[in-house]
Amino acid sequence: MAMTAAVKDELSRVPVTRPSARKAELATMLRFAGALHLVGGHIVIEAELDTGSVARRLRKEIADIFGHGSEVQIVAGGGLRKGSSRYLVRVTKDGERLARQAGLVDLRGRPVKGLPHHVVAGGVADAEAAWRGAFLAHGSLTEPGRSCSLEITCPSPEAALALVGVGRRLGVASKAREVRGGDRVLVRDGDAIHALLTRLGAHESVIDWEERRMRREVRATANRLANFDDANLRRSARAAVAAGARVQRALEILGDDAPDHLLQAGRLRIEHTQASLEELGALSDPVMTKDAVAGRIRRLLALADKRAQDLGIPDTESAVTPEMLAP
Rank of each mutant, 00 (worst) to 15 (best):
L170Y: 05
T4D: 06
E217L: 12
D191F: 14
R219W: 13
A6W: 06
A242G: 08
R249N: 07
G145R: 04
V89I: 15
K60F: 06
Q264C: 11
A127R: 03
P19Q: 07
P259L: 12
E25T: 03
P15M: 05
R298S: 10
L196W: 01
H117P: 02
A202F: 04
V112Q: 00
L163V: 01
D315F: 04
G167Y: 00
A21D: 00
S284G: 11
V44S: 04
E217W: 10
Q248D: 15
D126Y: 03
E210M: 11
L58K: 08
A55Y: 05
I152W: 01
T153R: 10
I62M: 09
L36I: 12
M214N: 12
S20N: 05
W209F: 14
T4M: 10
V218Q: 15
P155E: 01
R108P: 02
A121N: 11
V185D: 00
M3T: 10
G182C: 12
A159N: 02
E25V: 00
L283A: 10
A35D: 06
E278H: 07
A308W: 02
A125S: 13
R31N: 05
T92S: 09
E323W: 12
I193K: 05
K23C: 03
P327K: 08
A239F: 08
V293F: 05
G139E: 01
